[in-house]
Design a protein around this nucleic acid. Structure first.
Length: 306
DNA sequence: AATTCGGGGTC
DNA sequence: GACCCAGAATT
């Protein structure tokens, strides 16, 4: 597949590039701790670094250990999550914190299988925390690493639509043998994908491995498929987001006023959901624990939980 | 394997 | 206006 001589060159060049060009992100600092790394990885699931930074900083100051977060009412956690998106992640992070406080003595577990058992922690996040927080040479494969491997090694513009076993095998083959170097390699390749080997306009002129890139060697062929973008306008996700924005802002809203107030807030754009969609979305938020319903007053209220 | 689940910056 | 972002859980 790949000879040791070639991979050693990649290790040296990409890790060297990372040392001088990698960003000084707070969760990369040695004193950050595993809790900070875990929080960052959950927040970074489908959310760009620049948007996570301020929220992560405030979060860590407010809840320095898992136990602190676990003791908080969900409403506060949801509010602190702000507009990072996918607010179920906030509840899963709190549930993970409760497990860590209860079963692990308030210490983030240091192996991938234990991490994988936490809510909101999947294959990637478990490997990333084990690697970046504890120095374990796990196979870390995120969207950046997949794209770098597709281009650098496979000569294609984009990776497959879904993560394949072959990609995991390739990532394993490419990793340095020495654990510390392997962990740095994972961070380096990820950073290369984030800063240089980007999805749209790759900066090949600044790439430390452009001369050995299979994609460039092949003449930078176009993607063999057209990425189907996620629909947004009119979807339940947009309507749920609009309702959550109201709840974060006001704490609680009369159920009957949700349509007009969401429209007035502008979070729905030009979309005007029908009553069936509103009801479906409210039911979904209740089921997810992101909202609670209060029928004790003169009119039913929807509020943040806890 | 395919869907669902936010939100905003960027081209 | 389409595309993309340190994915996970569910079906």
């Amino acid at each position: 597949m790949s000879t040791p001589v070639i991979t050693a060159t990649l290790h040296r060049r990409i890790n060297g590039w990372f040392e001088s060009e990698g960003r000084a992100l707070p969760w990369r600092e040695p004193e950050c701790g595993a809790w900070g790394v875990l929080v960052s990885e959950i927040m970074l699931q489908q959310t760009p670094v620049v948007r996570v930074l301020p929220v992560w900083t405030a979060w860590m100051e407010r809840w320095p250990t898992p136990r602190d977060l676990a003791a908080e009412p969900p409403a506060e956690v949801i509010r602190a999550w702000g507009r990072l998106g996918y607010p179920r992640r906030a509840l899963r992070l709190q549930a993970a914190a409760a497990q860590i406080a209860g079963r692990h003595g308030n210490m983030v577990p240091d192996t991938a299988p234990e991490l994988l058992a936490l809510p909101g922690v999947g294959t990637y996040t478990a490997a990333a925390v084990a690697c970046f927080a504890f120095g374990r040479p796990e196979v870390v494969v995120d969207t950046n690493i997949r794209r770098v491997h597709a281009r650098l090694v496979s000569g294609r513009a984009l990776p497959e639509k879904s993560l394949t076993a072959a990609e995991m095998d390739l990532a394993r083959d490419l990793m340095p043998g020495e654990p510390d170097e392997a962990c740095r390699w994972n961070a380096s390749v990820m950073e290369l994908g984030a800063l240089i080997c980007t999805a749209r306009s790759p900066r090949c002129g600044q790439c430390p491995v452009a001369e050995v890139c299979a994609w460039r060697e092949a003449g930078m062929p176009e993607p063999h498929y057209r990425p189907t973008g996620q629909a947004w306008a009119g979807t339940d996700r947009q309507v749920r987001g609009a309702i959550m924005a109201l709840l974060r802002d006001a704490g609680r809203v009369p159920l009957g006023e949700i349509p007009e107030r969401a429209a007035a807030a502008g979070t729905l754009g030009a979309h005007r959901p029908d009553s069936a969609q509103f009801e479906r979305c409210v039911a979904g938020l209740l089921a997810d624990g992101l909202a609670s319903r209060d029928d004790e007053g003169p009119e039913p209220l929807l509020s943040l939980p806890g």
